[in-house]
C-alpha cells in the first residue's frame, strides 16, 4: 500500500470531498433533530442541534479572541527574551 499515492489521489478529488463534507454536516444536524430526548434535563440537551451552534460560535470566538489578544499585547518578536 502506498500511503503517498492514496493521499495524492484524495487531494485530486478535493471538490468531491468538500461536497461530501457539507452533506455530512447536514446529516449530523438532521440526526440530532431526530434523536429521542426523553432524558433531557438541561437546556444543552433540549435545544435541537445545540452543539452545532455551540461549535460554530465557540470556534469563531476562540479564534477571533485569541488572535485579537495576541495582536493586542501578547505577541512579541522571537528574540524578545534575548
Amino acid at each position: 500500500m502506498n500511503v503517498l499515492k492514496i493521499i495524492e489521489y484524495l487531494r485530486g478529488k478535493a471538490t468531491l470531498l468538500k461536497m461530501a463534507f457539507f452533506l455530512f454536516l447536514g446529516a449530523l444536524v438532521l440526526l440530532d433533530i431526530l434523536l429521542p430526548r426523553e432524558d433531557a434535563h438541561y437546556f444543552v440537551d433540549k435545544i435541537y442541534a445545540f452543539w452545532t451552534f455551540f461549535a460554530l460560535a465557540g470556534c469563531f470566538l476562540l479564534i477571533k479572541i485569541s488572535k485579537g489578544i495576541a495582536h493586542f499585547f501578547l505577541s512579541k518578536d522571537e528574540d524578545y527574551y534575548g
Binding site: 452545532t52 461549535a55 479564534i63 488572535k67 524578545y80
Partner: peptide, 22 residues
C-alpha cells in the same frame, strides 16, 4: 465537524506568525 467548517472558512486567520507569545 463544525469546528472543521469554521477552520475551513478562517484558515487564513490561523496562518502561523513568526512570533512568541507572553
Amino acid at each position: 465537524s463544525f469546528t472543521g467548517l469554521v477552520f475551513y472558512l478562517l484558515v487564513k486567520t490561523l496562518s502561523p506568525e513568526v512570533k512568541i507569545n507572553l
